[in-house]
């Protein structure tokens, strides 16, 4: 439709203009992160640094332990993703394949909780974690995020689509239900599981408000929290700020370029956001 209303050239022109608007902040971030202090503040702006100042990265690392933040982010992201996958697989199987009393009610109550913004849970969860003595620990960063109603819902839908005959056949062959779940259902549900895992990784890596609140010490900070603190630590040295921002952004951009097919398809299918 737009093809007839506009010429091909116009379409490309508009899309390219939009693309420049989308990508410029990233290019500007990387370019600024490699500039000398003088070039950063140059007016008119210097687009490409005359020489690549990789020192900005080591300087940022010297001021704040981004390597430590990075390890924390990796630990939190990996463990909460594995945790969520495990709890989701078990729960989705129960909701899809086991006929038990109260199944519909329990599921409806869980779905209902999805309407509550997570910001509402912040204060009571903080109180719970302080009572448990978990504040400023990996447990606080990981355990509350190891189950997701949305993921259970998604996988349950997928499990519904697996033919029941498979489980009859497995039973005849003497395969236990638990083994059947892990050796037949889980491999079949790989596309759904990859979607769940990738969206979880993105959300977990970028999470800010929760880690901000449950961490006190520098050693426990994740990358976004460390980066936010760095804005005061680095002062007004934009080349360092941009180097630090690049360290936070680039891992997810790389993951996106590798797994882009799954991420885009996952978002289009689930409409899951943040």
């Amino acid at each position: 439709m737009a093809k007839e209303a506009l010429s091909k050239g116009t379409i490309y022109l508009l899309l390219t203009l939009g693309a420049v608007f989308m990508v410029l902040p990233f290019l500007w971030m990387i370019s600024s992160s490699l500039k000398s202090p003088n070039e950063v503040m140059a007016m008119p702006p210097v687009w490409i640094p005359s020489q690549l100042n990789w020192d900005n990265y080591s300087e940022a690392l010297r001021i704040a332990p981004f390597d430590k933040y990075f390890i924390n982010s990796v630990i939190v992201t990996v463990l909460s993703t594995i945790g969520e996958l495990l709890t989701t697989i078990l729960a989705a199987y129960a909701f899809a394949r086991i006929y038990f009393y109260g199944r519909e009610i329990v599921f409806a109550v869980l779905l209902g909780t999805m309407m509550v913004p997570s910001e509402v849970l912040l204060i009571p969860n903080f109180v719970t974690l302080s009572n448990l003595g978990w504040i400023d620990s990996y447990k606080a960063l990981i355990i509350p995020w190891t189950a997701s109603v949305f993921a259970i819902f998604l996988l349950r839908q997928f499990f519904f689509g697996v033919p029941k005959e498979l489980s009859y056949a497995a039973k005849v062959d003497g395969c236990s239900e638990f083994r059947f779940l892990w050796y037949v259902m889980v491999p079949l549900a790989k596309p759904a599981l990859i979607t769940i895992a990738l969206l979880k990784v993105i959300n977990s890596w970028n999470a800010f408000l929760w880690p901000l609140i449950v961490t006190n010490s520098q050693e426990m900070r994740t990358l976004p929290v460390g980066l936010s603190a760095f804005t005061t630590e680095a002062g007004i040295k934009y080349e360092l700020l941009m180097a630090a921002s690049s360290m936070v952004v680039l891992p997810m951009l790389i993951l996106f370029f590798i797994m882009q097919k799954y991420i885009v398809a996952g978002v289009a299918r689930t409409g899951l956001k943040g």
Partner: peptide
């Protein structure tokens, strides 16, 4: 290209 900001940290891009 249009999808890039979605996968990146809000904190980082807000600083940029």
């Amino acid at each position: 290209i249009y999808f890039l900001p979605f996968v990146t940290s809000v904190v980082a891009v807000a600083i940029v």
